[in-house]
Simulated scan of single mutants.
Amino acid sequence: MKKTAMLFLSFLLYTTNSYASNEPSFACDTADLVTEKVICGSRELSALDRKLNELYQAELSKPYVDQNKLQSDQIDWLSLRNKCEYGYDCIRGKIKQRISILDTKHVQAYSWGGKLRAAPSMDSIQVGSIFGKQNIVIIEKTNHVMNGYPWFFIEASNQQAFQWGGLLCDPNQPAASYCLENK
């Protein structure tokens, strides 16, 4: 009897954990919108929704991100996603598109050299420097702009810091960085 009870308890815990891991980032039992119900009925869409939520929450936690703009953009995006209603491919496409917008980490680029800053400002303290044409990894573009170029949070020589977009070349972001090929 004890062995049967343990097996039943193990099965119950396994199915509960398995079910919980298939849930999207919101509670399906309170889902009102058609789009939310479609997401709840799909493991793939639920997994994409969880990934999107992780990226969104990570962005919200960054001190240099304009939280009001990010939240406004998310609300606008949710309105677009919800227009998909029963359209599985439409919902999947909208979620993947939003993920690609939020997941800008690890873009290969290079710097023309210059100072690395502790914050996205020329008034911020210098925390390092890099030489011309040094490869860097762009972790993300900030909302801070100077002379038409945004500041970027980058990694160079195993150090993470900020550098102005006018000193960077990212072929994937020609309008936000300075590449001789684009000028």
Rank of each mutant, 00 (worst) to 15 (best):
P174I: 07
S100P: 02
L70H: 10
L9P: 02
W164S: 11
L12Q: 06
Q67N: 08
S25N: 11
L52E: 06
W151Q: 03
N172V: 10
N17Y: 11
D29T: 13
K2W: 01
R92T: 01
D32M: 08
L60C: 00
E155D: 06
L48N: 04
F26V: 06
P171R: 14
D103T: 05
Y86V: 13
L180V: 13
E59R: 15
F153G: 01
Q67L: 05
F26S: 04
E140Y: 15
H106T: 00
K69L: 15
K96N: 10
R117M: 15
T15E: 04
M146I: 05
L180W: 12
R117A: 13
F8G: 09
E44T: 15
Y56D: 01
T104Q: 14
S25R: 09
T104V: 13
L180H: 08
S111Q: 03
L48Q: 04
Q134M: 06
A58R: 13
L168I: 15
W164P: 01
I130A: 06
H144C: 01
Y88C: 04
K105V: 00
P24V: 03
K2N: 00
A58M: 07
Q67W: 01
L9H: 03
A175C: 00
T15L: 01
C40Q: 05
D76M: 09
A58H: 13
A20H: 14
Y88K: 12
G113K: 12
K2G: 01
L180F: 10
M6A: 09
F131W: 02
I75M: 09
K94V: 03
I91S: 03
I154W: 05
E54V: 15
Q160K: 15
K141S: 10
C28Y: 13
E59W: 15
I139D: 11
P24R: 07
A27F: 05
C40V: 11
Y64V: 05
I39W: 05
S121V: 12
Y19N: 10
Q57D: 06
N135R: 07
R43L: 09
F26T: 07
V107G: 00
V38R: 06
E181F: 12
E44I: 14
T4Y: 11
E85W: 02
Y86R: 14
K94F: 04
F11N: 01
V65D: 00
E181G: 06
F152G: 04
M6Q: 10
